[in-house]
C-alpha cells in the first residue's frame, strides 16, 4: 500500500502553562488522508476541528501550540520543521481556503495580483505569465469576465466571487492538499452549491486531496468521501460518509444526525442533544460525551474509550459501539 498523503498521529494541541496544567484543546488525534481523498472533519464550535486544520497549515493562533504528536506530509515530518522550509510547502504543496474571504484577502491589492503572487514566488513565473495564470485560474473557477475582474479590489466583488478568488489563489500553484475551513458557511445556498461544485471539479481535475472542515452534515455528504466526527478535541467516529450516516456507532454522531433537519424527511422529529459541550478547562475524565449520553454506563466516566473498528474502514470511540444501537430503530 502506498503511504498516505497526510498522516496525523497522536496530535495534541493546547496552551502550554509553565506553572500548572496545560490546557488541552485537541487530544491525541490520529487520522490519515489518502491521495485524491475528500476528507471531511465535522464537529460543533469548540470541538477543535479548525485548530486541527490550522496546525497542519502552521497557522495556529499565538499561544496555542502543538504539544505532542506528529503530522507527516508525504512522508516528511512537519512538526518541528524550521519555519522557512515549512513556508515553502504552503502554496505549491498545501493550500488553505478560509471561511470569510473578505478578511482573508488583502483589501488594498487587486485580486489578480493577489492570485499571481504565489505562482511568481513558488513557480518562478514572470509577472506577465503569473497574471496570465491568475486569469486562467479565475476563468476555471467560473468567474465571468476574468480579465476585467482581475483588476478589481476585494470589496468590489460579491461573497461568492470572493470565495472563488480564494479558490483560484489556493489552487494556482497546484497544491496536492487543499485545506478548507468552512468555505461556504458565509454564502447563500445557491452560491454555496455553485462554489462546492467548482471546488469538487477542480480537485478532481488536479487530483488534489481535500481536508474539509464544516459543521454542516449535508455539505459533508455532498462533498466528501470520508469523514471524522470530532467532539471536545477527540475523533469519536470515522469512516466512509455513507456508512457513518447510515449506521452511526457513536451516540454523539447519532445525536448530530437526529438533531439536524433533513430536507428529505420533513416529518421526522428533531431530537436535540441534551446538555452542553464540556468546558475545555474542566474536562470530564473518561469519555467527554458521557455527561450528555443516554447510553452512558459507569465505565464511560473512568477512561477514554479506545477507538474500535466496527466494520471495515469504520471506527468509533465508544465502549458500546458494537451493540449500542441494536434494536434501536435507525
Amino acid at each position: 500500500m502506498t503511504q498516505p498523503l497526510l498522516s496525523v498521529k497522536s496530535l495534541t494541541i493546547g496552551v502550554r502553562r509553565p506553572k500548572g496544567v496545560d490546557t488541552i484543546i485537541v487530544d491525541d488525534l490520529s487520522f490519515e488522508i489518502q491521495r485524491g481523498e475528500r476528507f471531511g472533519i465535522v464537529g460543533e464550535s469548540g470541538s477543535g476541528k479548525s485548530l486541527t486544520l490550522r496546525a497542519i497549515a502552521d497557522l495556529l493562533p499565538a499561544g496555542v501550540e502543538i504539544l505532542t504528536g506528529s503530522i507527516r506530509y508525504d512522508g516528511v515530518e512537519l512538526v518541528g520543521m524550521p519555519t522557512p522550509a515549512r513556508r515553502r510547502l504552503m502554496g505549491p504543496e498545501i493550500a488553505m481556503i478560509f471561511q470569510e474571504p473578505m478578511t482573508a484577502l488583502n483589501p488594498v491589492i487587486r485580486v489578480g495580483e493577489q492570485i499571481a503572487e504565489g505562482p511568481r514566488r513558488y513557480l518562478g513565473l514572470s509577472k506577465r505569465d503569473a497574471m496570465k495564470l491568475a486569469i486562467e485560474m479565475m476563468a476555471k473557477t467560473g468567474i465571468p469576465d476574468p480579465v476585467r475582474r482581475a483588476r478589481a479590489y476585494p470589496h468590489e466583488l460579491s461573497g461568492g466571487l470572493r470565495q472563488r478568488i480564494m479558490i483560484a489563489m489556493a489552487l494556482s500553484c497546484g497544491p496536492k492538499l487543499l485545506l478548507c475551513d468552512e468555505p461556504t458557511t458565509a454564502l447563500d445556498v445557491t452560491v454555496q452549491h455553485q462554489v462546492l461544485r467548482v471546488l469538487e471539479q477542480l480537485c478532481a481535475d488536479s487530483g488534489a486531496s481535500l481536508a474539509f472542515v464544516t459543521h454542516d452534515l449535508a455539505v459533508v455528504n455532498q462533498t466528501c468521501s470520508d469523514l471524522a466526527v470530532m467532539y471536545a478535541g477527540h475523533i469519536v467516529e470515522s469512516g466512509r460518509v455513507k456508512d457513518v450516516f447510515r449506521d452511526p456507532r457513536h451516540p454523539y454522531t447519532k445525536g448530530l444526525l437526529d438533531s439536524a433537519p433533513d430536507f428529505d424527511q420533513p416529518e421526522r422529529e428533531l431530537v436535540p442533544i441534551p446538555g452542553f459541550p464540556p468546558n475545555l478547562a474542566a474536562r470530564p475524565s473518561g469519555c467527554p460525551f458521557a455527561p450528555r449520553c443516554a447510553f452512558a454506563v459507569e465505565a464511560c466516566t473512568v477512561a477514554m474509550p479506545p477507538t474500535v473498528v466496527v466494520a471495515p474502514g469504520h471506527a468509533a470511540a465508544c465502549i458500546e459501539s458494537q451493540s449500542i444501537f441494536e434494536g434501536v430503530a435507525a
Binding site: T190, Q192, L196, N221, F245, D262, F263, D264
Partner: peptide, 14 residues
Amino acid sequence: ALIDSIPRMTAESV
C-alpha cells in the same frame, strides 16, 4: 433553484 441547491443528507437525492 433554491430547492435544488439545498445540500442533502441522503446521497441518493443529490
